[in-house]
């Protein structure tokens, strides 16, 4: 594919940034909740769905996007928003429910919005898919060359919104790319028990949409497939569907006992860690040394630490602010 060294290192940086953010959130999440797990306690209350293991998908897709390309995401959105270029401080502050967060604490981890990055997500499976279609409709009406992307999981590919959206996008030939993150499970139910086709890429044919399955642990494979789809959309040639096969390293959410996994399954997938896959390739090509990799890790650890400090030190919103922002 002949990507520049700069692009390759940016992909690596982004994946490390996401992993570092997620692992630190995962640690902090348990503060104040143990020994008897209390979901409402600690600095980060509520549910927590982390993206560790799937970094190559968000990174490979978003590397082809501009800040004004709309993205809709899911309950597992941190990776997409970081790859889109979000300020970690505002993101972390939102996850902490602080006044300085993206939504002044009204959204939280599952409802992250940033109009500057044209980013939105939500906790309803499949909810963002029609909205990406609508964003693409707005783009087409204005004759712009922007493209909308919707990330969602294999579970969402079984909800009506997915099928209605693919049909709409196809009949209206909209600049939208649908990205199925097939992490093999919808919470605990394996895809084999939930999905009538072997690959969700096969479903593109039902709507006349070009579709491809890629190795979601390989950021270069994702990048290449996304580039083709996004370029096609920018050229006005309509929607595409990408199925990226990937894996959750931390289960569905924090506290998931993962009783549904086969013995040794996760360890096997961890051998295909997307960061290590790209890291090894870069090292083999002489584009990255061990020392440079350590420096990148140190830089990301610092960035996340700054975000954490910002979030911890920020004030909570005044309670009565709960009554604000109902109407524009």
């Amino acid at each position: 594919m002949g990507l520049s060294k700069e692009t390759l290192l940016n992909l690596y940086d982004t994946m490390v940034k996401i992993r570092t953010f997620e692992e630190r959130v995962g640690e902090m999440y348990y503060e104040g909740k143990l020994p008897a797990f209390d979901i409402a306690a600690g600095p980060i209350p509520g549910e927590m769905h982390l993206y560790s293991g799937q970094e190559a998908v968000a990174t490979g897709v978003c590397a082809n996007l501009q800040p004004d390309d709309p993205v809709t995401s899911t309950h597992r959105a941190h990776g997409h928003l970081i790859a889109k270029g979000e300020d970690l401080k505002k993101m972390m502050a939102e996850i902490f429910g602080k006044e300085t967060g993206l939504s002044h604490g009204k959204g939280g981890h599952m409802h992250l919005f940033d109009p500057n990055l044209h980013f939105g997500c939500g906790g309803i499976v499949g909810g963002g898919i029609p909205q990406a279609v609508g964003a693409a409709l707005a783009i087409k009406k204005r004759g712009e060359d922007r493209v909308a992307v919707s990330f969602f999981g294999d579970g969402a590919a079984n909800i009506g919104a997915f099928h209605e959206s693919l049909n709409l996008a196809s009949i209206w030939r909209l600049p939208v790319v649908f990205v199925v993150e097939d992490n093999l499970y919808a919470i605990s139910v394996p895809k084999s028990a939930s999905t009538a086709v072997r690959s969700n890429a096969e479903r593109g044919a039902a709507y006349g949409i070009p579709a491809v399955q890629v190795d979601g642990q390989d950021v270069l494979a994702v990048y290449e497939a996304a580039k083709e789809a996004i370029d096609r959309a920018r050229r006005g040639e309509g929607p595409s569907l990408i199925e990226a096969v990937c894996y959750r390293f931390r289960g569905h959410f924090e506290g998931d006992p993962e009783l549904y996994l086969a013995k040794g399954e996760k360890d096997k997938w961890k051998e295909r860690d997307p960061i290590n896959i790209l890291g090894s390739q870069l090292k083999a090509q002489g584009l990255l040394t061990d020392a440079e990799a350590e420096a990148i890790q140190a830089k990301m650890t610092d960035l996340v630490a700054e975000a954490e400090a910002f979030a911890r030190e920020s004030p909570y919103p005044a309670p009565e602010e709960a009554l604000e922002h109902l109407f524009a």
Partner: peptide, 28 residues
């Protein structure tokens, strides 16, 4: 037909699309 758009019978799809178009600055 670009501004008066007949839709398929996909209420979730086109009402959701209206939401997405609105967040992108249209007034559907």
């Amino acid at each position: 037909p670009e501004r008066i758009m007949d839709t398929p019978i996909s209420e979730m799809g086109f009402i959701g699309a209206a939401v997405g178009a609105a967040t992108e600055g249209m007034r559907p």
